[in-house]
Each structure stands twice: as C-alpha cells, then as structure tokens.
Design a protein around this nucleic acid. Structure first.
Lengths: 238, 238, 238, 238
DNA sequence: AATGAATGAGGGTTCATTCAT
DNA sequence: TATGAATGAACCCTCATTCAT
C-alpha cells in the first residue's frame, strides 16, 4: 500500500550512506517479519513499513519477495556461522568432553536467543527448502561446526573419552535436534504436556538434559554428571 | 475462480450419509493441503477442489478456515493418540528397555510415515499454537504416551535398568526431538550437511542413533555398543 | 481498486439471470474500454466500474485480463460474421457488379459504424495476434464474406462483367484496406493531409472512391461510373 | 529495478559528442521499443536499458515519456519525408503512369521495410493522435508526396493518360491504404484468411495487386498490363 | 553530463467469506 | 444440503518520475 511516512530527511544526508541504511533496514525488518509470520504470511508492506521505507525499495534492492527471503536466509546463516567460528577459539582442546559440552551449550543458547533463526529455518523447511536451493552462497557456507566437532571427537577418541565409532554428523544432528525442537515446537508441546516449557526453570532443566544426553551418547564410559561450568550451571535438581 | 464441476449427483443416496461424506472429504483434503502449504498458504479453494466440493461447503461444515484447521489438528492428534494406544498392548512389560526401545521406534516411524502430522504441527507452531489453544478437545487429548512411558520407566527403575532420576517427560521430549527434527528439517539439513537425509540407508542409520541415544541416556549402566554399522543391521538390539 | 457501488438490488432478483447480466455487462464494458485504450491501456478496474461490477467478477467469469480480451475478440468477430451473413440474403445474384458494390459498401459502413471493431483489431495486431492465436473458436470463424465474394465473382466472370483472373481474396483485401485504413488512421492522416477526414462530406467522398476503385479494379471493361443506389447516393460525384 | 551497468567511461571523449551519442541511442532505442510494444506498453526502463543508458537520461534529454514519443514521431516522419524527396529525383516526368507506378511501389516497399514506421503510426492512432497534435514540427512536415503526386497526375491528365477527375489526395490515400493495411493487419488477416501473408510470394503478389488497382483506378482507358519495371517485376501471373 | 536512491500511485490478481436461492 | 454469484480487502509487483548529488 506504500503509505506515506513523515521521514525526517537528514539535513545533509549522504545518499550513498543512506542507501546502505535502507537496504540494511529492510533486511532487518524482513528478518523480523518473516520470522514472525513465515514466508507466506510475511507481507511485503509490513516489512517496508517496519523498515521505515517503501514497498518499492524492496524491489529496488532485492528484486522480489523471494529474493529478499533468500537474502534473509543467507544473512542469518552467516551470522550463525560467525558465532560458531567465534566459539571455536574458546574451546579447550585438551578437554574434549568439556569442549563437546560447550558446543552443545552454544547451540542450545543460540537457538534460545535467536528465535528468528529457528523460525526462519522452520519456514524455509515448510517451503521444502526452495529458497535455500536458489542460493549458491548458502550452499557454500555449510557447517563450520561440523569440522570443529570432528576435531573434538577425534581428540576425545584418541584420549579414550569417546566411543570410537561416534560420528560428527550424528552428534551434530543430535545436538541440533535437542535444542531446535524444544524451541520450535514449544507451543504445541506446552499444550500437549500441560506445562510451560519456556520458564526459566524449564529451560535450565532442558539444558541439563541436553548435556547429559549428548555426553552419555558419546562417552565410552558411563556418564558421571559433567561439571557444567556455564552460567546456568548446576541449577536444577537431579 | 471458485470451482465449477460437473458433479454427478447420486440419484437418491441418503442425504445424511452424503453429508458425512462431504465433510470427511473436506477434512481429508484439508489435511493434505494444509500439510503441503501450511495454514497461511493453504487455500480454501484448493481444499474444496481436492475434496470435489465447493468453497461454500467448507463454511457450511466448519464455519471458517480457522475452524477447519482446528478440526484438522484435532483429527491428526487423535489419530496419533489412537496409534499410541494401540502400541501399548504390544509392549513387553517385563522388558522395560525393550519397551522403551519400541516406543522410540514407534515415534520415529510415525513421524516418518505421517509427514502431514509433522508438517501440520510445524505450521501450528509457526502460528504460535493459536489454533490449538482454541480447541478444548485438543487439550483433553494430551499425551497418552506419557503415562505409558511413566509405567515403563518405573518398572525399569525398579528392575535397576534405568537411572532412578529419569523423568518420563524428558524421555518423551528426547524421543520426540530426535524423530521430529530429522523429519521436519531435512530440507535445510540436507543442504547444510551436503548429503541426502531421506535415503533409506540414512533413515536406518538415524533410527540406530535414536535407539542408542535414548537408551544410553536412560540406562543406569553403560550401554553396550549395539553393532550399529551395518545399514539395517540387527537393529534394535536390546 | 474495487470501489463500492450503490447497486440497486432487484427486489426479487433472480440470481441466475443477474449472473448472465453481469457477464454480459463486463463483456460490453470490456469492448468499450479495450477499444478506447487498447489492450495494454485497458485497465481492469475501468472495465469493472463501467460494468457496474467488481474487478473480482472479471476473474470469476473470464479468468484473466487476457482471456477477457480473447472473449472480446471472439464476440466482435462473430458479430461481424453475423452481419456478413445477414447481408448475403439481400444481394442481387443477377447483378454481380451491383452485389460487389453492395459488399464494398457493407464493409465500409461496418467499419465506420463499429469503431470498436477497428480499434480492437488494431490493438490485437499491435500484440502480434497473440490473443487471437489462443482462441480456437476464432480460427473457426474465418471469413464468411470470402465465400460470398467468390460466388459473386464467379457469376460476374461468367457474365463477362469481371476480369477472369480476379481473386476473391484479393478483392476482399482491397475492400478491407480501403475501408479499414481510412478509419484506423484518420488521426494521423488528418494532420498529414491538413483536412478533416471524418466530416460527412469527406466520408461520402471516400465511399465513392472505394466504389470506383473496387469496380475499376475488377471490371473487364472500363468503369462507367456505377449508379450507386445506396442511401448516401449521388453525393460528391466529380 | 532501475538498471545498473558497469559502463566503461571513455577516458576523455568529448563531452558534447558523448551527449549527442546518448541522445541518439535513446531515440533509436525508443523507436524500437515503442514500435514493438506501442506507446502504452513501451517501458521507460526498457528503452534506457536498450540504449545502454539510464532512465534518468531520458528525462534529461527529452523531459518525459510523452515528449520522447513525440520526438520519435518527428524522427520517423522526417525520415519518411526524406525518402520521398529522394524518390522524386528518380521519377520520369515524361511517363506519368510509370511515375505513379513507382510511387506506389515506393510506398509499399517503405512500409514493408520499415515496420517500426507502421507500428508507431498505428500506436499513435490508437492514442487518437494526441502526441502528433503536440508537435508543431510534425504539422510542418506534412506530405511531400502529395505535391509530387499532384505534378504527376496533372501531367498525366494533360497527356490523356489519367482520368481528368483524379485527385492527388485520393490517390495518395489509395496507395497508403493498400500498402499500410496489409502490413499493419497481417497478424489477424493471416488467421482470418488462413494463409501466410508475409511469404515472399504473397508479398510479390500483393504488390502486383496494388499496381493494378492504382492504375486501373486512375487511368482513363482500361488498364493494359502496366509494365512494372521494379526488381520484383512481372513475376506473378495476371 | 551522469547516476544511484527515492517516491507514490496504481496494475493485475487472489483471498476468505457471504448472499440468495 | 448444495451451489453459483457476489464482495471487498489486500497482495505482490511495476510504472513513470524526481531527488540529490
């Protein structure tokens, strides 16, 4: 509908910079809107309004709603990747179990603190990955975590901490499953289970479950409660 | 273009039955369409066409698109419940670990063979559960599996097979996570991992992972490695 | 934009009849609008407004703007055909020259009194006949005039009135050229020639030219000004 | 999406010349685009892209889409005029019938080899000549052919070759009708007649028809095969 | 002279839904 | 119970044009 807005023009606005701004604002708005309503429900007008711009500019910068969505996916994926890379530097190579624990924690907290990421991936899966398929950039990104995991597991196997047949891919999927599903499906789960899943206590508890599950599934020897150091810590009973 | 069909009217057919028919056809069509396109993308016309009926009939029987979706949710949920109930009779009460394994298997195969179930729940979660909340029937259904699980776990704990602190709810979520996520997100995961997740081999492998994970997370004593490697393998050792 | 209209609902409106009405009104309006603005310039909203209906109904009855245009072409073509058929019954078989003259007159007056016909064909030609190609009905219609002409010419040749090598197709094109071009291009021609082409006098004169040209091009013997009987009569002789 | 090109700027090139270049390129592109899509369908962006320039430049040089179209009309009209003038020098004053024949041939071939000319005039007529009316230059050009024709006819009348009442204007319109209509309407005519009108054979034949028609309509005495000299020559039967 | 960014008015089309038999 | 017709809001996208360097 391209409504008029009372845009306060910068007195000496450098157009070029403003442009970057507009593109960025649209992208940011698109992330929010698509995350909230999904691709189908994400209305172009809502995005442009939220961005403080015009429908037209979406087409100017991105060409179409679909291409905008692809850009959104690329954006959130690469942010996720960067976070993963940043994580790696903090891992303790000498303590594979601890490192694995940290990695699981990272994923869990990333999903938890980036609901858009979860929502957008969910939406894309409902579209059968049709947008992701259109992006070569997306295919290139792929998982950094996988190689990190691989290193950790190899080290752990050498140290006799992990089962020799653990596969990075499986552990990755395990971690992802546990963290993602809880976040993506909590609405129906809450109804189903008759309890609130997003309470702080519930969240802390589930984190423990993840930790326990991941380690007991990978360790060679029975799991003795891993001393999780992270902020949330021991917390919940057991 | 609201459909126009040359419907061959049954010369006399019992009205009431025909009605049931129409209602049922619409419901069945709605499941397919909403599963494929999501709630937002599920067009009323597509449903009525697929049902071999008219848009108008949807309103006649269900009142609105939203109410139709609620009916769809109720339907797939209760079918899921019935399947769960049917499962219980086959469980071996004397072998808690085996029963747990069977339950995990059941869930995994249910998701796998009922993609609409997965898709519809996903869609509903994208709608933040707003339709589920409107259904009192839905709230009543709740999980039958939970009580079944409870029984199994108690028995196992008594037998010293399971860790005494396992909680049915957690195990339920664990099983669901592992099965659901793999099915709901395989499109983006395939791209991410660079491999086909829905190949038969991949599916069989993931089933093994689920089994192993669930058991190692619940058992008191270390899991003795099930010989996972072969694709189909002996499976569900126990 | 689908504006609201203060439609006076028929107190006991028979829906079915009203429907026919709506479809017809839209078609009629479309003829006017497309004739005035061409296919490209013919706005859907203008059509629906002129028809006293809604944009939506155009899609309900015709499916798309393009299909509506095809329907328009089919309509004006078949009306033209009917007029041609009606003409035939009035022709004097014993007077081939007179019959030919009448036929030329018919075409000229048809173009003159049906500017939409001319405009729509012109528009369709600017679209390279893309809509016409989509209509099988249109291809079936083809010219009735051609066979009528054939008969007239054969008779005339036998009587020694027409040149033995005249071809119906050529005469048809000749008649069409002379009548159509004058009507379709009078705007630029008026500027070019510096005179009004649509004055009554000018029109009568051009009719004489057509008559003279057609007959002198087809007659075996030099044309002695044919005593044109039709209404416009003697007019601008010269 | 307003174009974006990696234009290689001439390192120094004379500004003025470059400007002329750009203007010229735009005009040339506009002719093509407007001819192909008509005034309404001729998109500003398509023109600027085809010209290898920017939308903005069209406004810089021409002010508006309408004014650009006027410029296009002026351009094609004056080119037509120049061609007509060039023709005159080749006419044989001593052979009025031959000259007339040549003139008819010229028009026919001009239309045939300049489809843009035909298309643009057609488009302008669909706009009811509104652009032509805005150009004083256009009105000044007017037809050179008319005076040439006048001379030829006078000479022919004096020689007793042409009917004393032939009028240049009528002959002009006759020639134009026969040549223009065939070219402008061949798409629908092909469908109507069920034959290809733009085949070489069909074109040669129609040229003969034009020749025959023009001469038989103007000559005092019955037409005896006019000795057409042009390339295509006698060719087709008669 | 050239150009990237912005603008706002529609354009065709589709939606879920209701009317009136 | 079933059905064709009607409704109006909104959706994605495109257009010609102007701003501001």
């Amino acid at each position: 509908m391209t409504t008029k807005k009372t845009s306060i023009k910068p007195a000496l606005g450098v157009r070029a910079k403003q442009a970057q701004d507009t593109r960025g604002k649209i992208l940011k708005a698109a992330i929010k809107v698509f995350a909230k309503y999904g691709y189908e429900g994400g209305r172009v007008e809502r995005i442009s309004t939220l961005a403080g711009s015009y429908d037209r500019m979406i087409y100017y910068y991105f060409g179409s709603k679909e291409k905008l969505f692809v850009a959104v996916l690329e954006n959130i994926y690469s942010q996720f990747n960067e976070a993963e890379q940043a994580l790696e530097t903090t891992l303790d190579r000498e303590d594979p179990a601890g490192a694995l624990s940290q990695l699981a924690d990272f994923a869990w907290h990333y999903y938890l603190s980036h609901p858009e990421f979860v929502a957008l991936l969910t939406s894309e899966n409902m579209s059968k990955g049709k947008h992701a398929k259109k992006s070569s950039r997306l295919r290139e990104i792929s998982s950094y975590a996988l190689s990190v995991l691989e290193t950790i597991l190899q080290q752990g196997i050498r140290q006799g901490v992990f089962r020799p047949d653990v596969r990075a891919r499986d552990v990755y999927l395990l971690i992802a499953s546990l963290g993602y599903f809880y976040n993506s499906n909590h609405h129906t789960l809450s109804a189903f289970l008759g309890e609130a899943l997003m309470d702080e206590a519930a969240l802390l508890h589930w984190r423990e479950v993840i930790q326990h599950t991941v380690l007991s599934a990978t360790r060679l020897h029975p799991v003795v409660l891993p001393p999780v150091k992270a902020k949330a810590s021991r917390a919940v009973k057991r």
